[in-house]
């Protein structure tokens, strides 16, 4: 799922068209296509929008409208790791506001931002369904519950060592 090597400018049109072809037979295939494009490229780059629109016989506005409607789709690749911190009520009841302050302070970025070295993207998420072990977060595809500032630090440090 790493988007570290995703292209910043032009996109490989044939790659995107191949993804469209794989889903064309479905009813209402656009979200499926966007999921796979983001899985392959780390994001849905703006340059991919007209390619998908043409292939599906939709307007660019329609595709752009869908990409921007859903919080999950991004137009730029994220950092090497993505930490999604739950901000919903159950996690708030168990201390997620303090975790959020700790993280933004430690990383020097706000929610929805990436550290300058591209190491980590911090995002808000609204419920991971781990509410019996709040506060919860997801580091890439890995779930973590009953988090404390110390445990979060340990997770981020362990990740940094692996990647170094």
């Amino acid at each position: 799922m790493s988007g570290a090597n995703a292209p910043a400018g032009p996109v490989d049109e044939s790659r995107i068209l191949a993804i469209v072809e794989r889903h064309r037979h479905r009813d209402g295939p656009l979200l499926e296509i966007l999921h796979e494009v983001q899985g392959a490229l780390g994001c849905v780059p703006a340059a991919a929008v007209p390619v998908i629109a043409r292939a599906l016989n939709l307007s660019r506005a329609e595709v752009h409208g869908v990409v921007t409607f859903y919080h999950h789709f991004r137009s730029a690749p994220p950092g090497r790791r993505v930490l999604r911190l739950c901000r919903a009520e159950s996690c708030q009841a168990a201390g997620s506001r303090a975790l959020e302050r700790h993280l933004t302070g430690r990383l020097g970025i706000g929610l929805g931002e990436t550290t300058a070295d591209g190491r980590i993207t911090l995002e808000a998420v609204y419920c991971l369904g781990l509410c019996a072990c709040s506060p919860a977060a997801m580091l890439d595809q890995e779930v973590h519950g009953r988090l404390t500032p110390d445990r979060l630090d340990a997770l981020l440090d362990a990740g940094a060592k692996v990647k170094a």
């Binding site: 209402g28 295939p29 979200l31 409607f69 919080h71 999950h72």
Partner: peptide
């Protein structure tokens, strides 16, 4: 798969999303 929109839990919004729209 949905794409991170709480409103899609509302049934008609979910149908729109299943059809590939906002």
């Amino acid at each position: 798969l949905g794409a991170g929109a709480y409103i899609c839990g509302e049934e008609t919004s979910m149908l729109e999303s299943l059809e590939g729209r906002r």
